[in-house]
Design a protein around this nucleic acid. Structure first.
Ligand SMILES: [Zn+2]
Ligand SMILES: [Zn+2]
Ligand SMILES: [Zn+2]
Ligand SMILES: [Zn+2]
Lengths: 142, 142
DNA sequence: CTTGAACCTATAGTTGCTGTAGCTCCTATC
DNA sequence: GATAGGAGCTACAGCAACTATAGGTTCAAG
């Protein structure tokens, strides 16, 4: 039996985060001591580790919910798991592409600035006027 | 004189977002009609465009606040603007590196799965056990 | 003068936590 | 058995940067 603090330490999670996962139904309601403190089993530890590892790979909680559900039903087809992972990969790829575009714009505007006053600053000029950019769009924010 | 809707349309911003910027002091309180509706001038349009463009380049609102302040004081030294931009560039580079690491892990786990049941799924196995990963850490989440 | 699109305020919800206040409990030491 | 203090408890506020909704008012065209 583990306390919530032990689970936290063993998985690198904050205690409040574990309670939050319980609140949103990602972690089960564990047993309690007479005094009302949570006590977890090894199954819970594994589940939390699964959640945390999935988060580290960038999966949103809703995706993790589905992945846990599949993991809880070993006889089901894994197609759903794979498609969630592929969706996540596409998401990551999109974000990389967008960030790479931002990186070049930032590099360029920083590289062009020769210092001096704010009125001469290329950084500020570019921010004022998107037509100074090479990209014709930097669509989605974040 | 422009309505809030015109500003929104011309800068690709939601009306509520403009009011939000006013609330947090990024946009000034504009004049109002007799009936209480906001009316903006061209200066306001430029300012909003500056904010939006900066957001598209990923600058957080607090950084934009400083950039606007510099832009409002043309005689100041532009060093601060440049260092904000360099900080943003470093941030973007960090995120790219992290996402590239995630991309390889995702590609690998997807590539290894041969289908079948959830119990045989490599995707789920990797999520259950980080030692299946090549990276020994995927530290920061998001 | 009427209609309806656009405006107004205020508040709650989003995602995934994190921090705080003000308690109570558990356990080690004496 | 008493006590101290680390760990646990609930409940709620806050973060970033919006977005959405409800329920009302104003503006401008016809
Ligand atoms: Zn400069
Ligand atoms: Zn641009
Ligand atoms: Zn699979
Ligand atoms: Zn891993």
């Amino acid at each position: 039996m583990h306390t919530i603090g032990t689970l936290a330490r063993r998985t690198g999670t904050k205690v409040q985060t574990i309670r939050y996962y319980e609140q949103i139904g990602l972690m089960p309601e564990p047993g309690r001591t007479e005094g009302g403190q949570r006590r977890y089993g090894d199954v819970d530890l594994d589940r939390l580790a699964f959640i945390r590892h999935s988060r580290q790979l960038g999966f949103p909680l809703e995706a993790i919910r589905e992945l846990l559900d599949l993991s809880d039903h070993p006889a089901r087809d894994c197609g759903a798991a794979d498609s969630i992972a592929r969706r996540q990969l596409r998401e990551v790829e999109t974000r990389i592409a967008r960030l790479q575009a931002l990186r070049s714009e930032l590099e360029r505007m920083i590289g062009e600035c020769r210092g001096g006053t704010a009125s001469e600053c290329r950084v500020l000029e570019v921010l004022r006027d998107h037509s100074e950019c090479l990209a014709d769009d930097h669509d989605a924010i974040d």
